[in-house]
């Protein structure tokens, strides 16, 4: 059982915590892993100012392609291609809709969810903290939706690599700041933190790490072998 109803709205306003320049550039060039690209695409859906940055990065990428010294195509490439022009185009890419119809969950993420957030098979991690693991074959770290009941503190933890946490509903605080819907918290192994969910609603967040979490609090150490983030 999940303790509190999930509010079906995302409070207005735009995110205050954004993709780093490096991540944005890597998204633009296609250099991110599937899991990290998922977080980036989901944040971009919720963040017009990062979309403006992306448009700039893509324009620069286009200009760099334009400026690159051309490499001659193989002999006959144009003729082979011209011969294919009259073949019917493949059907437009199907949008992956999966099972979630939540209109506030970014489309790139909905594609990974079998049901609405309310009906996901949440697994209890500890009292007040629930997890739904995304199916991301080959991903080394954690890639999950986390759901934290109001006022609940996550186990204190640090990371061996990087952690990206995108708030989808509700909000949380940790010593690095306040994070509401659309905000992206980026932490690395220098940050030992303990996010606490806001008092008024469940906090649902997409959390992706490139290495397993390392729990640091007393409670955390005790739980570590069981959590298997």
């Amino acid at each position: 059982m999940v303790a509190a109803a999930i509010p079906q709205f995302r409070p207005g306003g735009q995110p205050a915590h954004h993709l780093s320049e490096e991540l944005l550039l890597a998204y633009a060039t296609g250099g991110l892993s599937e899991a990290v690209a998922l977080v980036a695409a989901a944040h971009l859906t919720l963040c017009p100012s990062c979309r403006a940055e992306l448009a700039r990065a893509q324009a620069i990428g286009g200009a760099l392609v334009e400026a690159t010294p051309p490499v001659a195509m193989q002999a006959g490439a144009l003729d082979r291609l011209l011969a294919r022009l009259d073949q019917p185009a493949p059907p437009a890419e199907e949008r992956l809709t999966a099972g979630s119809r939540d209109r506030d969950i970014p489309g790139p993420l909905r594609a990974y969810l079998p049901a609405d957030a309310e009906n996901l098979p949440w697994r209890k991690v500890i009292a007040g903290l629930y997890e739904y693991k995304l199916d991301l074959p080959g991903h080394q770290g954690m890639a999950s939706l986390l759901r934290i009941i109001p006022g609940k503190a996550m186990p204190q933890h640090t990371h061996r690599g990087h952690e990206m946490t995108l708030v989808l509903r509700g909000d949380f605080d940790d010593k690095t700041g306040h994070y509401g819907a659309g905000d992206l918290a980026l932490t690395d192994d220098t940050v030992d933190h303990q996010p606490v969910a806001g008092a008024h609603a469940d906090c649902i967040a997409l959390a992706v790490t490139d290495a397993p979490l390392k729990l640091t609090g007393t409670f955390g150490r005790l739980l570590n072998p069981f959590i298997r983030f």
């Binding site: 599937e34 690209a37 998922l38 859906t45 979309r51 489309g107 790139p108």
Partner: peptide, 13 residues
């Protein structure tokens, strides 16, 4: 899969 921003997404802010 290739997660990608969709300009037609109903969730787009």
């Amino acid at each position: 899969r290739r997660p990608e921003l969709d300009p037609e997404d109903p969730a787009l802010v």
